[in-house]
Simulated assay, not measured.
Amino acid sequence: MAGLTASGAAYAQQTKRMAEPTELIDQQHCMFCHTSDSPFLAPSFHQIAERYRKVPDATVMLEQKLRLGGRAHWGDTPMPLPPERGGPLSPEDAHTLIQWVMTQ
């Protein structure tokens, strides 16, 4: 990363792909509504990352939404409540999932 500014290096590190947390994705049934790169019933993970990547505190908001469900930000499909998609999600697991989404 020679030649990158400190903020450029931080952005490059943030957007570096991390390993897919497959067990969490399966447990929470994420692929019932999302795909990696095409909209389905909900936006793709890539679309979510593009929309929120440069928004301050977006990861905190997304982690909260993932843990609690909530109103639709795209179209008419809200994020299902935890019991409807695999059960409660710990703050640590929500963080892991959102960090992965943000690298898409």
Score class of each variant (00 low, 15 high):
M1T: 10
M18C: 07
A72W: 07
H46R: 14
I98A: 02
S38N: 07
G87K: 01
F32A: 15
L62N: 04
F40G: 01
P91E: 12
A49V: 04
D76Q: 14
V60P: 02
G69N: 08
I98Q: 02
E92K: 13
G87Q: 03
L4Y: 03
D93I: 09
S90E: 14
K65F: 02
H29M: 11
P88I: 15
H46G: 04
E20M: 12
E92C: 04
A58M: 10
H73V: 14
G69E: 11
I48G: 00
T77W: 13
S44Y: 04
G70Q: 05
S7V: 07
Q14S: 10
V101M: 15
V101F: 15
V101Y: 09
Q104A: 05
Q99V: 01
W100A: 02
L81M: 13
E92S: 09
M79P: 06
M79H: 04
Q28K: 12
H34E: 08
W74F: 14
T35N: 08
T96P: 15
W100S: 01
D76R: 15
Q104S: 03
F45T: 01
Q14R: 15
Y52H: 14
S7Q: 14
S44P: 00
L24D: 08
P83Y: 00
R17I: 00
H46M: 12
T96C: 06
L24F: 10
D37S: 12
K16C: 00
Q99P: 00
M1F: 09
W74T: 03
T35C: 01
P21R: 15
P43F: 03
M1H: 10
A10M: 05
P83Q: 00
G87N: 04
W100D: 00
M31R: 12
L24I: 12
H73P: 00
A42N: 10
L68G: 03
E50Q: 12
A6H: 03
G8P: 08
S7P: 06
